[in-house]
Design a protein around this nucleic acid. Structure first.
Lengths: 207, 207
DNA sequence: TTCACAATACCCACATTTGGGTATGCACAC
DNA sequence: GTGTGCATACCCAAATGTGGGTATTGTGAA
């Protein structure tokens, strides 16, 4: 069996060496390269062409987020797993948006890390439990809002980019009616334009 | 140790009984109730008050999606795991939006199902690998588009709900310049209004 | 090197759309 | 029987969309 080739980016030399040793001493895995920062990784990673990249978020110099973005541009097929102490929303989502395929907290035991590498290699997306819950929750709609059902309908159409006229046509209403609904929606959302309303609707996941 | 109390909604009587047996015969788990459809579950589930609910999506009568929505409204703290043959985008995301905390394909072996129940009970969000990847990918931005950097900047502000004026102020431009940029953006996105542009930007994940 | 092209920045004029205000009426629920 | 959601209508001012036009800069192709 060809081992899964893994590269590392991790600034802590001890952890880096530890992971490299772990990989090289576990059948089925091999450590292609280990970098201390994104800059050096960016220069050489194309030559390593690993199957999986394990990287920290907090790095000296370029942040892990920006690093993911650039490496992903360089090697779009590479599966990147973040391995970090941070489990705050912003960093998690920024990493995922940048192109990471998995996200583990650093307390993950070695066996689980290896399992995660295998998982991502096989088309999965390993996440620590707390991260997974964060991700899932980001889909949940904020069910409750003082927006009436009819208003929701109109808001939904608005979010699809429809104009007064088009909404009126779609719901068989007059433009004036749509107007008055929109005005009430604006009051409730505390906005005063269509684009703001759409932005807010997305923020609060009302759509 | 108090066992994790699990309820089921599954229309196939064989599978239902199989799962119930599995749960009742595994230490640490117990089956609180097993329903064949959402309607009966909705009537009685508040009395069972299980820790976890395992449910199918395709059910006779009310769909699993709608079922999740209503049950979640009834018992917001309940952790719901979908267990189904479907792994198409729409159903997955609809379930998650409705309030499901996990999503397993039916080919998941019994041991993994039990593990998933434990995971969701402990605040995780168990997902089959393919589902997890789907979910993660939904965060990825479609990096490439013919939108120039400057235009992207303007589009981003637009998506935040800013008006011409505010964009002009934020970028130290004249209204006219913002205007001409917007016109080009509209051409490229094939839209002709701010809201449409915002909608398209969200669809294509350009923001 | 010159030419074309895209990106950036600015302008005008005109039609349409939108936002804010105010008002009316109906139906249903509490 | 008062409140809320829903529907309609009107006016006016401001914002936006449409369709032109000009100019500078840099990049890449011919």
């Amino acid at each position: 069996m060809i081992p899964i080739s893994v590269s590392l980016i991790e600034d802590d030399a001890d952890i880096r060496r530890g992971l490299a040793l772990l990989l090289d001493n576990t059948p089925g895995f091999s450590c292609a390269a280990a970098y201390g920062d994104c800059e050096s990784a960016l220069h050489e990673i194309a030559d390593d062409s690993p199957d999986v990249l394990l990287m920290d978020i907090q790095l000296p110099g370029m942040s892990g987020i920006e690093g993911v973005r650039r490496i992903k541009k360089l090697l779009p097929e590479l599966d990147i797993v973040m391995l970090t102490i941070h489990d705050d929303d912003k960093r998690v989502f920024d990493s995922l948006c940048a192109g990471a395929c998995g996200y583990l907290v650093k307390t993950t035991p070695p066996a689980k890390i290896l399992e995660a590498i295998k998982e991502v290699y096989n088309g999965g997306a390993p996440m620590s439990a707390s991260i997974a819950r964060l991700v899932i929750q980001s889909f949940q709609k904020s069910s409750d809002s003082n927006i009436s059902p009819r208003e929701q309908e109109i808001l939904a159409l608005l979010c699809q980019g429809k104009s007064y006229k088009m909404i009126a046509a779609a719901l068989h209403l007059s433009k004036g009616t749509v107007h008055s609904h929109l005005k009430k929606i604006y009051k409730k959302l505390e906005v005063n334009s269509m684009t703001e309303a759409v932005a807010k609707a997305h923020q609060e996941k009302l759509v």
